[in-house]
Design a protein around this nucleic acid. Structure first.
Lengths: 233, 233
DNA sequence: TAGTGGTCTAGACCACTTT
DNA sequence: AAGTGGTCTAGACCACTAC
């Protein structure tokens, strides 16, 4: 009888995880019920519940009422990626951040955007192009389209001194988002913005956000050559 | 007095979230204590605790003992990415999956790997090169180094019919991992493997994994041109 | 040292799913 | 119909930390 009384749900969580990893409970097998585990660990069922809920959140087990708790077949590991503001990313690497607005105009939604965002074909959108620099070297080109109907305040926002990403985060948090990473080859315009040559490989992040089901903005963030997105988990 | 009695912690969570998003509780402000909220919602403190814990996990608030719960300055920016097996990714897009082992040999750790993984300079590692195809078109080139001391069973594993990634997931789950995405330009060898031309942009995922603090494997997964990593959140 | 969140308990009832 | 997880409660004690 070990006497760690203080830290119960973590003890249960870690021990169950250990048994899964050492195949005491093999993939696909059924775990004991919460009540049985509570008895084994001499704790309340709620404690076991919390432990198993965390393991379920982390993708180690799958729980179904009446069926019980099963070890997942493929421990799908989820990586958490932080999508940070250009300013934050630059400052994090101890560089000087500079922002420049390149273009800003109100247009009616181009056809490709209409289908991407699923808005009316004649919806008014604010089109913004801007650059983020780190130590005066190009860091990221941001091209963005904001649906004015969803975020009317954007039309009067001052985007001369900080970017639309920053403004939107503060003024109109999104409720859903979708991201896509891809590798692209710089065309002439992009190469000029990034101070490189045509054909250079760069990583591009496209993000679409919605606010309460209303399409809000589509953004294309192109990073300087050599940029790397990292994460631990 | 609404009478939704059944779904309490979600009600509290969503209402608090709503107040944050509508700036009833502005960024950086202090929320009422758990006890006060429990009173307002006429529920137990544990219920409020669970609601606030979820919001804290999702990055909406920050909690500290004695200080209380504060609305985070810059709301959640975490995307969850699933790192799936090549086979899964291929099958998910309804293509036929094919695997081919290209190379397999035991070497002593090259210098760059030694520093990457922090292993002994003379550690034995298994070096594997293999290809994953979707409908017979190149999908992913996998190049991998596995520290034999950490996973001795790998030396006798049959890697002729399924990839090392798959084998490792089933036989030796990792405990920590680090990933890095970048865009690269194909060199001659890579272009040949991917059936494309030198200089083509491709997305590359480098992943290092550890098992209980011991370095396990370093993998470099290069995806076919046009490949896109997607996620919703 | 006092206030706040963190956790545990024992019991209860509910919701879903399989049989 | 029965078994399993999902959640709520009321009360308790603990751990951290700002004061």
């Amino acid at each position: 009888m070990t006497e760690q009384r203080r830290i119960s749900f973590q003890v249960v969580r870690d021990e169950v995880k250990r048994r899964i990893e050492t195949r005491v409970w093999p993939q696909g097998s059924l775990l004991p019920t919460e009540t049985q585990l509570a008895e084994e660990f001499s704790c309340a069922r709620a404690t076991v519940n919390r432990a198993l809920r965390e393991l379920s959140d982390q993708g180690f087990v799958e729980r179904k009422r009446k069926s019980g708790t099963r070890v997942k077949k493929e421990p799908r590991k989820q990586a958490k990626l932080e999508i940070s503001l250009a300013r934050q990313a630059v400052e994090q690497q101890n560089s000087d951040y500079r922002y420049a607005l390149v273009e800003r105009n109100v247009v009616s939604s181009p056809r490709w955007l209409t289908s991407q965002l699923n808005v009316d074909p004649d919806a008014r959108v604010l089109h913004i192009v801007c650059m983020h620099y780190a130590d005066n070297r190009p860091f990221q080109l941001e091209e963005r389209w904001v649906v004015i109907e969803t975020v009317p305040e954007i039309e009067t926002a001052d985007l001369n001194h900080s970017g639309p990403h920053e403004w939107l985060l503060n003024a109109a948090p999104f409720t859903e988002a979708e991201i896509a990473f891809s590798a692209i080859s710089a065309d002439g315009r992009l190469a000029e913005f990034m101070g490189t040559t045509t054909g250079t490989s760069m990583i591009q992040l496209e993000r679409t956000t919605w606010k309460d089901g209303q399409p809000m903005t589509f953004a294309r963030l192109t990073h300087h050559p050599g940029y790397c997105i990292r994460s631990k988990y």
